[in-house]
Simulated assay, not measured.
Amino acid sequence: MNRYERRPAAATEAELDYGDGEFRVIRPGAFVRCGVTGVPIPLDDLRYWNVALQEAYASPEAKMARLGIKVGG
């Protein structure tokens, strides 16, 4: 790496603007936190979020829990 190359956003938390079907990076980083569980979600693995609440979810179950919907029997 030379002095003109950007340093990677290693283990920093990103800030995103969640839209319908896509998100925009406001502050670069490697992950966001699940709004329900608090676990880190790598940006490459982010699949679930809520536009109105502007929060990410680690799994479909976490999103359903936020919506107050029980999963399973």
Rank of each mutant, 00 (worst) to 15 (best):
L16F: 10
L43S: 07
R66H: 06
T12C: 06
R24W: 02
G38F: 13
A14H: 01
I41Y: 00
P42E: 13
K70L: 12
L67T: 00
W49H: 06
K70Y: 14
V36E: 09
V71S: 15
F31I: 00
P60E: 14
G29A: 09
V36N: 07
R3F: 08
P8Q: 13
A9E: 11
L16D: 06
R33T: 01
L43P: 04
I41R: 00
V39E: 15
M1Y: 11
A52H: 03
N50L: 07
A52S: 09
A65R: 07
A11S: 08
V39C: 14
L53Q: 14
R7Q: 12
N2C: 10
G73V: 06
I26N: 11
E22L: 07
A52V: 11
V71N: 11
I69C: 07
R47C: 14
A10H: 04
G38Q: 03
G73E: 14
G19Q: 12
G38N: 15
N50Q: 09
D45W: 02
A65W: 02
G21M: 15
G72N: 07
N2W: 06
C34D: 06
G72S: 12
G21P: 08
Y48K: 02
E15C: 03
G35W: 01
G68T: 08
D17T: 08
A58E: 03
V32Q: 00
V71C: 11
D45Y: 08
R24E: 12
T12P: 00
G29T: 02
R6D: 08
G73A: 05
S59C: 15
E13M: 10
A10L: 05
D20K: 06
A9K: 06
